[in-house]
Simulated scan of single mutants.
Amino acid sequence: MPDLTGYSTPSVLALFAVAAILVWVAGTRLAQYGDAIAERLNLTREFIGLIFLATVTELPEIVTTFTAAQVDNAGLVLGNMFGGITMQTAILALADFFAVRHALTSWPRKPTHALVAVMLIVLLSALLAVTFIGDRAIVSHVGIGAICLSLGFPLVIALQRGFDQKSSWAPVDLPDEDRSEKALVTSQVDFSAQGTAMLIGRAALYSLLILGAGMVLALSADALAGQTSLGSSFIGVSLLAAATSLPELSTTLAAARIGAYTMAIANIFGSNLIMLALILPADMAYENGPILSQADASAQFSIATGIMVTAIYVAGILIRRTPSLMGAGLDSWLVMAVYLVSLAGLYVMG
């Protein structure tokens, strides 16, 4: 892997900024093409939000996690993953502030989102327990905790599908839903003249652009951690997690603007589940033993705040008529407060 530690701090910051811009642009365009492909292939919005959109917007996290693990920076890997969970959940609060009528959690018509969030809390709690007792390698340097947690995403998807098909739960006293038929991400591009093969090809090109930019993000963040006094954990939780969450931010805000509120929620919860699944490839790339055994107090603190913000939104979904404050739900204000306090806490710990 290229070493950027020899570059000056302004040069590394410039590389980081350029890579972040590329991630933002490519992530937005990839979501547009992905939505067009889904429409062409008659895929459901639920699939787009929870599986497809969550997966493609996680590409920066995938490549940065793998790259940071290869350069043996466990603090950056764990900070990016666990801090990213709180960061991405806070994106829902931003959508509530700027793009949602009524409270965001007043809109879901099904309990599916609450179920997925509860399972996410269970997995995060198990992860926190593993960081306290330490992971144990069973295959080379790969830990049993990493293997078990990586199975959480397909397990939750299977549980969600079965629950969604059998549940007779029905909400009452809901706000009027926006029935807009617009695409998930608004665009001036007309995809009707493009064939399916062209759509897939261009989506692949944007995926490669995100992969390349994500690698630059990880390498520049690793260099910044060494050149500054902030430390790998704080850089991973704040700067790197924010940059790699740009695709989630752009797609979630776009979904909320057109009234696809449940799609926005599914995108974030799905992204957080995939974040936990990344522990296994990170463990495989990190050669100094199970990576979860390197979790420090900062990583454990990030996991705890991830549990808190997810639980707050579960409560909001169950209450349904969430109290509003200045146009946004009280739960979103609480989530944003927890996120800001977590940044301050991690800075002090660092």
Results as ranks from 00 to 15, higher is better:
F132H: 09
A137Q: 04
S140M: 06
F153K: 09
I147K: 05
L151I: 12
L151D: 04
G134F: 01
Q160W: 12
L159K: 08
L151V: 12
S140C: 02
H141A: 03
L120A: 12
R136H: 10
R161D: 11
L123S: 15
L151Y: 01
G143E: 05
G152R: 10
I144A: 14
F132P: 00
L124G: 13
V122S: 07
L124I: 00
L127W: 00
V122N: 03
A146M: 07
L127V: 03
G152Q: 11
L123D: 14
I121D: 07
S125A: 14
G143H: 04
L155P: 09
H141V: 01
S140E: 11
D135H: 00
G134E: 06
V142Q: 04
C148V: 15
F132Y: 10
H141Y: 08
S125L: 13
F132C: 03
S125H: 05
S150W: 11
S125V: 14
A129N: 04
G145F: 13
V156M: 15
I138T: 12
L128C: 02
D135P: 00
D135R: 00
F132N: 07
A158P: 00
I147M: 10
F132A: 09
T131D: 05
V139T: 04
D135Q: 01
S150G: 07
G143C: 07
G152K: 12
A146H: 02
G143V: 04
C148A: 15
Q160E: 14
V139S: 01
A146F: 01
F132T: 04
P154R: 01
A146I: 06
L155F: 08
V142P: 00
I157T: 13
L155R: 04
D135I: 01
D135E: 04
I157C: 08
L123Q: 12
S125C: 09
P154T: 06
I157G: 06
F153H: 12
L159Y: 02
I147Q: 08
V142M: 07
I147T: 09
A158Q: 06
R136Q: 11
L151E: 02
D135A: 00
L123G: 15
I121H: 03
S150C: 13
L123P: 05
L149S: 09
I133Y: 03
R136D: 03
I157E: 11
A129L: 07
L155I: 12
A126N: 08
I157N: 08
A129F: 04
L159R: 10
S140A: 13
A129W: 06
S150Y: 10
A129D: 05
L120E: 09
V139L: 12
I147P: 03
T131W: 02
V142E: 04
L127R: 01
F132I: 03
A137E: 07
L124K: 09
G143Q: 06
L149A: 10
C148Q: 09
I138V: 15
R136L: 05
S125R: 02
T131C: 08
C148I: 14
G152N: 12
Q160I: 04
S150Q: 02
L120V: 01
L124Y: 10
I144S: 11
R161Y: 13
C148N: 07
F132L: 13
A158F: 11
L123C: 14
L151N: 05
L123I: 11
P154D: 08
V130H: 02
I144P: 00
V122I: 15
V156L: 12
G145D: 12
V122M: 10
I157V: 15
G145Y: 06
L128D: 06
F153V: 12
A126D: 10
